[in-house]
Design a protein around this nucleic acid. Sequence first.
DNA 1: AATGAATGAGGTTTCATTCAT
DNA 2: CATGAATGAAACCTCATTCAT
Lengths: 215, 215, 215, 215
Amino acid sequence: MTPRPRAISSEDKAQKRNEILDAAETLWLEDQHEIANMHSVATAAGVAKGTLYLYFPSKEELFLSLHERQVRTFFEMIIERAHQAKPMNIHEMHTVVRRFIESTPAFLPLTTLVHGLLERQIPAETSFVFKERILNHLNQAVDALKPHFPNITAHMMMQSYAMIIGLWQLLRPTPLRELIKERLEDVACSDDYLNALESALNALWRGNLMQEPVS
Amino acid sequence: MTPRPRAISSEDKAQKRNEILDAAETLWLEDQHEIANMHSVATAAGVAKGTLYLYFPSKEELFLSLHERQVRTFFEMIIERAHQAKPMNIHEMHTVVRRFIESTPAFLPLTTLVHGLLERQIPAETSFVFKERILNHLNQAVDALKPHFPNITAHMMMQSYAMIIGLWQLLRPTPLRELIKERLEDVACSDDYLNALESALNALWRGNLMQEPVS
Amino acid sequence: MTPRPRAISSEDKAQKRNEILDAAETLWLEDQHEIANMHSVATAAGVAKGTLYLYFPSKEELFLSLHERQVRTFFEMIIERAHQAKPMNIHEMHTVVRRFIESTPAFLPLTTLVHGLLERQIPAETSFVFKERILNHLNQAVDALKPHFPNITAHMMMQSYAMIIGLWQLLRPTPLRELIKERLEDVACSDDYLNALESALNALWRGNLMQEPVS
Amino acid sequence: MTPRPRAISSEDKAQKRNEILDAAETLWLEDQHEIANMHSVATAAGVAKGTLYLYFPSKEELFLSLHERQVRTFFEMIIERAHQAKPMNIHEMHTVVRRFIESTPAFLPLTTLVHGLLERQIPAETSFVFKERILNHLNQAVDALKPHFPNITAHMMMQSYAMIIGLWQLLRPTPLRELIKERLEDVACSDDYLNALESALNALWRGNLMQEPVS
DNA sequence: AATGAATGAGGTTTCATTCAT
DNA sequence: CATGAATGAAACCTCATTCAT
């Protein structure tokens, strides 16, 4: 009816793009059973369906962009903390991770979906560029963390990231959780994903930062 | 056209079920861009479409069953090795993992898909039962490994499993791989997923089996 | 598993046939949203699917047979009452109708379905034979009612039957019923189907049995 | 292929909707063995399958809409005639009915189907609204007929409507028709549905408009 | 006679994307 | 730039029926 407010300047465009991503994120949180359809995203963003395609070449790339925005935020949070004068240890590191995960509940489910589904349906080139950017962020984080963890490597960061997403896929909140608590004897230290993750990252970093391999 | 060989006994039925899973596995390997449609599976298995639904309630549960068969095999390989007299160390452990992954190329992609997509479309009850069985296998593997790794825990195993799938999602063979090699300086020890995994599991187990936490 | 008790004698067969119809009638009453599938009928009747086809050539003819059994009962009830010495008037007639409808709640819905669906999918010959039998019953009823209503005709009976099923299709119990009550001013005499039917049959018979046409 | 003429204004949309209903009506007349599938309707209407779903939420509701359009026309024909100065009697009334039925051969078969099948598969709310509208038309017709038939009631109209559809289900042209002629002795006045209907409506109206009940 | 495993045609609906306006 | 009407491919699953046992 009233198509009006057009995004002319590139700031306007960037903002509209972000509004669309906001709408997609909201919808994703509302129902993670499946990715929202473009009609819903358009409606939630207050634009017409066709407009979405002015900002994103396809549905998959729209959600990939949303994911990328989240990942970027994740590494920015780490870098920001690392730049503070206060020294970090593994626990501090994990606190940042925990804070991000809790402040961005759409992150882990969407990560799983992106890796499981979207990536297959995205042009190799796009996928490549996406991963390149992620890797850049990761490397920047490594650099920022060097003062706190002199032995840190990009591999360590990638392993940690892998643990974050892999463990979530096994322990995501479901009816399963109750079962897991019963089956694992030493439940004391891991009654849910975040605790299990802390424990896992502790071990991982300890193992990586130790000099001596186990015999 | 020729409906013939009927599976009357329950052994016959189990075999037919497995034949269907074999067909699904083959198709999955041929094209991992998306799950094969039921028509293709039926044709590949040499049965009619309707027959598939005599053995599996839905497409999703068919592929979940395929995944479960693979996971079961994985833990059976571990248990089998553990039962041999010859002592194991971390490297031996990883050899088993590597052998399984290489002998079952459909495993990691399907795992990613199961966690990313299928699970959302499966009744909670089914999903629960599936996870329960996996957990059983995992616990049996822990028990079998106890003689070799006295300090092993179910959490360690779950962390390792999480690393296996999480790392694969980051490093799966794609155009990305070439990029990674360039970006990560110390490529020596990780020119692909399996090497990166060995390194990660080493660190993880080392960290878990060490007595002293890093300060 | 235990196929055994075979119906050899034709009484056995007739009884088994009736048991199947009983099962079908029960299922139909349980859910009138759609005709039960053959699997359900077989299960409810305690036989195998294939057995149904020993007694009925198709699903449609099974339900047509069920319908015919009900219609036969309907006319038998009328004839039985007509044979009693006690004289009948229109009201008595309607009492029989009401008693049948109330004792056979599956009748009217199934009649609607039979006319709306089944007939189209049934061989003309079968359909013909079915209607011929119904007509026989109807004519017998007319003969039986002659002593009570000397001017009665087969047409009157058919009109009455048409009113019974036509009115039900308009007034069948649904959320609509409440609405109808509000819309029709003179609700006094018809707060539901059975009352509306009595009123309609009264008018119909009165109009038929009157000598003089309205000018 | 050639999506062209877009219905933007609501008049355009209403027209397109009607064109779709026209196509459905034509197909229904061509073969009443079963409701045409959506592919056929789309092709006949010259639109794509998906377009049908822009105008009707489901196949059932499409055909229900078609039925409603017919019913509306029916009552409009009655009202139109009633508004003419020329006085009406029962015979005139029946002439309108006959003219409608003959000009809309799709009406009676579709009515039977709607009541027998479609209605079960339609949301109660939709079904309710449909019946409400029909009732409105019926009441308007009653009002329009008051000058001609001072004693007319909504119940009479409903009974007449019930007779129209009920009788058709019993006498619809089939192999049965020949049989009926042989069985009913006084064939003079009812050699087919329309004659039988006239006779029935005569009796019904006579009975309703008479002051004295039969003893 | 009875079983139930196997068949396979059949059709609705969704929804990402396009492009005329 | 923005809209939203139109497209049409795609695929799951049901279930009546058959027939080997």
